[in-house]
């Protein structure tokens, strides 16, 4: 029945949507040999694509935004080498999505693959696809409010990543290729929703992962080439330790001690399910 209700609501909103207008805005900055960039992406509503761009541009954003409710944000601070990009609600108010039209905003943001990048992403109601492969991510902080987001590391990270902190309110979040991320520490904190953490990719170092989920489903896709240990703290959650052996309070993959690289995962969950899947060749 829910789709019908949504359809009825959209039908009633259709006339309102017709009055709105989308506006193209582009910004970029020439690369002048910068070695570090701190980028903050604020994107309230719509579709967002993030990836690697041209080497001669430090960053670029192409956005088509709803000028009645949003303003484009493009603010570079040369003193500390930071930039804020995205689309914010006009007047600094919170995001209130009142029609499907607002979600038709689109933005493509690209960063230079030659510069170390500390990336802070704050998403509202967004359909996001962040392909961070090929970039030089040194820090990643992603907050997905009520978004459907996919974060991918399709290629190995060009730099050593100190930490990746991911959080989601009521979101569907998929993070794939975490092995390519080269992050020493990965933390995820979720409220309600469905989360897939895919640890595929090329593991060049050991990593520690902390997953805290209040209510929802967490799927861990574990690499066979690394020694995996999962420490679980659950209350009303189910856990399927497929292919793992119990060692006291934790579960380990066979041959954990002999593995060259270790993936240590701590999972805390209140209610929901924790699933494990194995990826890669046996």
């Amino acid at each position: 029945m829910r789709p019908q209700l949504i359809a009825a609501a959209l039908l009633l909103c259709a006339s309102n949507a017709a009055a709105q207008s989308m506006r193209p805005f582009t910004t970029f900055r020439q690369w002048h040999g910068e070695t570090r960039l701190t980028a903050r992406l604020e994107y309230a509503a719509g579709t967002l694509r993030v990836g690697a761009g041209r080497a001669d541009e430090l960053y670029r954003m192409d956005v088509s935004y709803d000028e009645d409710r949003f303003v484009p944000v493009s603010d570079f601070d040369a003193s500390d080498g930071s930039v804020t990009l995205g689309v914010a609600a006009e007047g600094g108010a919170g995001v209130r999505v009142v029609s499907q039209h607002q979600l038709s905003q689109t933005a493509g943001i690209a960063f230079s693959p030659k510069t170390d990048l500390a990336l802070d992403v704050d998403l509202g109601a967004v359909d996001g696809d962040l392909d961070l492969g090929g970039l030089r991510i040194t820090d990643l902080d992603l907050s997905a409010g009520a978004s459907r987001a996919t974060v991918r590391f399709t290629r190995p990270n060009g730099a050593r990543c100190r930490a990746a902190t991911l959080s989601a309110g009521a979101a569907a979040l998929t993070v794939s290729g975490l092995g390519n991320s080269r992050c020493d520490r990965i933390a995820f904190e979720g409220g309600v929703g469905k989360v897939v953490l895919d640890f595929g990719g090329t593991w060049s170092s050991s990593s520690k992962v902390e997953v805290r989920m209040a209510l929802g489903e967490v799927t861990l896709r574990l690499p066979r080439q690394a020694g995996v240990a999962i420490t679980l703290d659950k209350f009303l959650s189910s856990f399927e330790p497929e292919g793992l052996e119990r060692h006291g309070t934790s579960y380990r993959s066979p041959g954990y001690d002999q593995a060259a690289r270790h993936l240590d995962i701590t999972v805390s969950t209140a209610a929901g399910a924790v699933r494990t899947e194995w990826i890669g060749e046996k």
């Binding site: 193209p24 805005f25 910004t27 970029f28 900055r29 020439q30 002048h32 493009s74």
Partner: peptide, 18 residues
Amino acid sequence: RRDSAGEIGGEVRTLQSA
């Protein structure tokens, strides 16, 4: 538009207007 040996020190923005 910037030719290969042209230099833009700051940020470039374009805004299309209806």
